[in-house]
Amino acid sequence: MELMAVIIRILALIPDAYRNAEKLPVALITGGAVEAVAAIFLAFFKAPGGLFEHHGKAPFYLYYGILGFVAVFGFAEATAGFWVSGDLAERRAVGKTFLWVSILPLVLVAAFGGFVFMR
Rank of each mutant, 00 (worst) to 15 (best):
I66P: 04
E2H: 02
A58M: 12
A80I: 14
N20L: 07
F60D: 02
F73R: 05
G81W: 06
V72Q: 06
G65S: 11
R92Y: 01
V94M: 14
F115E: 08
G95V: 06
M118N: 07
V26Q: 10
P59D: 09
M1A: 10
E22K: 13
V84M: 00
D16V: 09
G68D: 04
F52C: 05
V6L: 14
A27L: 07
L11R: 12
A21Q: 10
G32S: 04
L13H: 09
R92A: 13
M118V: 15
L67V: 09
G95L: 02
A58G: 06
G74K: 08
M1F: 03
V6T: 15
M4K: 12
F45A: 14
P105E: 04
A111V: 14
R19N: 11
R91A: 06
P48D: 09
F75H: 02
G114Y: 03
A36K: 05
H55R: 15
G74R: 08
L13K: 12
A27H: 05
F115W: 14
E2I: 00
A5F: 01
D87V: 03
A58P: 00
V6F: 01
A47S: 15
R19G: 14
A21P: 06
L42A: 10
I40Q: 14
A78H: 03
A12K: 10
G56C: 09
F117A: 12
L104R: 08
A21G: 03
L106H: 11
A89W: 02
V107C: 09
F112N: 01
E22M: 07
R9G: 01
A39G: 00
L106D: 03
A43F: 08
A110G: 14
I14D: 02
A21W: 00
V6N: 03
